[in-house]
């Protein structure tokens, strides 16, 4: 089994290498997802490189979010969902028994479609992850993490005087940046974003997009988006999913100017979607 997968990695390697300027961070081979009996994802092979922004696009129900949730095993929380195939993070199989899902999620963070701050203070929202994982050894260090995370998410100036107020009291865009700050407070290596701007207005969206670009200097970012302009603006590479298949993955510019698959072209030119 392992051998076949490795061979597949070698054979297919060139097909997936886009602009491979970073080292290989995550690799998916023949990933299939089942909800009960029905197969929702039909064997996806995909490589993700360090410090890149990779966008997943495709019509709704195409499996892009499902695949994203495989990358930090969030699908485990759904009853009746089963994943086969192999996903590696730095060469380790993340579905291997020896790998702790807690550690995996600490390394591969996630931001969700709808801002979901906890009904706690802004400070507590950020401090939640570091506290759980024991990342800070004292109050001062925790304060430091909170401040730096908020700064990194560009929220510090807006909230530094009201850290004790509930996170749910912020505006939608602020809430989403709070959630991003919450994710980076854990110091993940990869951040998964599931349509992070779909619930936001254009101005808030612009802020979050700018943030994504900045964060990509430090983190590997995988973003699912409905919005092709967004994919074009923020990502270096784009993967197009359709009906549970990964149709193609390539440089974003290539995908949007001369895709190699007809379905991709049909989608980006608006024939369906």
């Amino acid at each position: 089994m392992e051998d076949t997968v490795m061979r597949a990695t070698l054979v297919n390697a060139e097909k997936f290498v886009g602009v491979a300027n970073g080292a290989l961070k995550m690799a998916a081979r023949d990933v299939r997802v089942f909800y009960g009996e029905s197969e929702a994802l039909h064997g996806v092979d995909l490589d993700i490189y360090e410090n890149e922004v990779l966008a997943f696009i495709g019509p709704s129900g195409c499996g892009k979010s499902t695949f994203l949730r495989c990358l930090n095993r969030m699908n485990d929380t759904i009853d009746g969902c089963r994943v086969t195939g192999r996903i590696e993070l730095d060469g380790e199989d993340i579905y291997d028994r020896s790998l702790d899902v807690v550690l995996l999620r600490a390394r591969v963070g996630m931001v969700f479609q709808k801002p979901n701050p906890f009904p706690k203070s802004i400070y507590e929202n950020i401090a939640y992850g570091p506290r759980l994982h024991g990342l800070a050894s004292g109050r001062a260090e925790l304060d430091d993490i909170v401040e730096r995370s908020l700064q990194r998410a560009g929220l510090w100036e807006e909230v530094k005087d009201r850290l004790e107020q509930p996170g749910t009291g912020l505006s939608g865009g602020q809430q989403q940046r709070l959630c991003i700050a919450r994710a980076i407070a854990v110091s993940p290596e990869v951040i998964l974003m599931d349509e992070p701007c779909s619930a936001l207005d254009p101005i808030a969206t612009a802020k979050v997009e700018q943030l994504i670009t900045e964060l990509s200097e430090t983190y590997t970012i995988v973003i699912v988006t409905h919005n092709m302009q967004q994919a074009a603006r923020v990502s270096r590479r784009t993967a197009f999913f359709h009906l549970g298949n990964l149709v193609e993955v390539d440089d974003t510019t290539k995908i949007f100017t001369s895709p190699s698959d007809g379905r991709t072209e049909d989608y980006i030119t608006g024939r369906f979607g």
């Binding site: 930090n72 969030m74 929380t77 899902v101 807690v102 550690l103 995996l104 999620r105 600490a106 963070g109 996630m110 931001v111 969700f112 709808k114 979901n116 701050p117 906890f118 009904p119 706690k120 939640y128 992850g129 759980l132 994982h133 959630c179 919450r182 994710a183 854990v186």
Partner: peptide, 23 residues
């Protein structure tokens, strides 16, 4: 979404229940 937010940060189930769901 509240549970997902906590689990996505690497919290265990009981941590999610005790620190997010119950509050």
């Amino acid at each position: 979404a509240m549970r997902d937010g906590s689990l996505g940060l690497g919290a265990t189930k009981s941590e999610t229940v005790r620190k997010v769901v119950l509050p």
